[in-house]
């Protein structure tokens, strides 16, 4: 047989960079949630330039000011501008959970892949350790970390990342164990690829969509947990703006019948958590549809 000329076979075809983004979309609800998340992301990245005032400094003469031209959403009991605090609070409120989810996902993938690949007693031992970690609620572990290492964002983020790790690790372990038995994985091994290559370059990309869907849902939960910690006064400390601590600070505002400084960050939390859950569910449905 004669050889054919081949120019584009070796490299995968070049793709339209926006195609994936377009394929991410779905119903109007999903698209709306994606827009909401995109807006919050832009706000978080550009917060210092978007906030009209510095939310760390408040004028006591302007305590509980009503919404107006000077303060679009009024002020809290310290005279801090609620709108500016909301914008700057987006940073800590989103980047904290992001750090939790990134760490938990990366470490969870490593643990889950290793466990599934080795199998046997290693898999069983890792499974029991994960069972123990499952027994600790994330919030409890975070409070323990605060008690040991002090208030702030770093200790709770690390503690919650450890608490969220088993969810990803167990998911990856189950997916990888099922995927490992597929013939294309055996084919990679027979071709002479190393176990690390087969796990990371062969197996992992095929389970990534499901893991990303789980990470998206985890983000919402992590945001809620970190906000709860800040609300309890154990997370981000004033005057650094944060949605959870804004709700805490706003308790007295509610009693003063000026609840806006508490309601606005609460609404922001609800909006972001719901948006992440909707997008996460959508991604999970897409993966289930693909695998069906």
């Amino acid at each position: 047989m004669s050889a054919v000329t081949l120019d584009s076979a070796a490299a995968p075809p070049r793709r339209d960079p926006l195609r994936r983004l377009r394929r991410l979309g779905g119903s109007w609800l999903v698209n709306t949630c994606l827009v909401i998340l995109a807006v919050f992301l832009v706000v978080a990245l550009a917060a210092p330039w978007l906030a009209p005032q510095d939310p760390r400094f408040g004028a006591l003469s302007e305590t509980f000011a009503d919404p107006g031209a000077a303060h679009w959403l009024g002020t809290d009991q310290g005279g801090h501008d609620t709108f500016s605090a909301l914008i700057e609070g987006t940073r800590t409120s989103l980047f904290g959970p992001l750090a939790v989810v990134v760490f938990a996902t990366v470490a969870g993938i490593a643990v889950g892949l290793f466990s599934a690949w080795r199998g046997g007693w290693v898999d069983a031992a890792i499974g029991r350790v994960l069972d123990i970690l499952f027994a600790f609620p994330a919030l409890l572990l975070a409070i323990l970390a605060v008690a040991l290492f002090g208030k702030g964002l770093t200790a709770p983020v690390l503690a919650m990342a450890v608490a969220y790790l088993p969810y990803t690790a167990r998911l990856v372990r189950g997916l990888a164990a099922a995927e490992k038995s597929r013939p294309y994985i055996a084919a990679y091994r027979v071709q002479g690829h190393s176990p690390v290559f087969v796990s990371v370059r062969g197996l992992l990309p095929n389970i990534t969509p499901t893991v990303l869907a789980q990470a998206t849902v985890n983000f919402g939960y992590a945001l809620l947990d970190l906000a709860a910690l800040s609300f309890l006064g154990l997370g981000v400390q004033p005057p650094t703006p944060d949605w959870g601590s804004m709700i805490n600070q706003g308790q007295s505002a509610v009693l003063q019948e000026r609840p806006l400084s508490a309601i606005v960050p609460a609404l922001a939390i609800v909006l972001v958590v719901v948006a992440f859950n909707v997008v996460g569910e959508h991604l999970a449905d897409r993966v289930a549809g693909r695998d069906a």
């Binding site: 081949l6 584009s8 076979a9 070796a10 490299a11 995968p12 075809p13 597929r182 013939p183 294309y184 055996a186 084919a187 990679y188 062969g202 990309p205 095929n206």
Partner: peptide
């Protein structure tokens, strides 16, 4: 099931 569904045949052989 014996071919990696993410890769084109050319990329697999490559």
């Amino acid at each position: 099931l014996s071919l990696d569904g993410r890769l084109s045949i050319g990329a697999t052989l490559d």
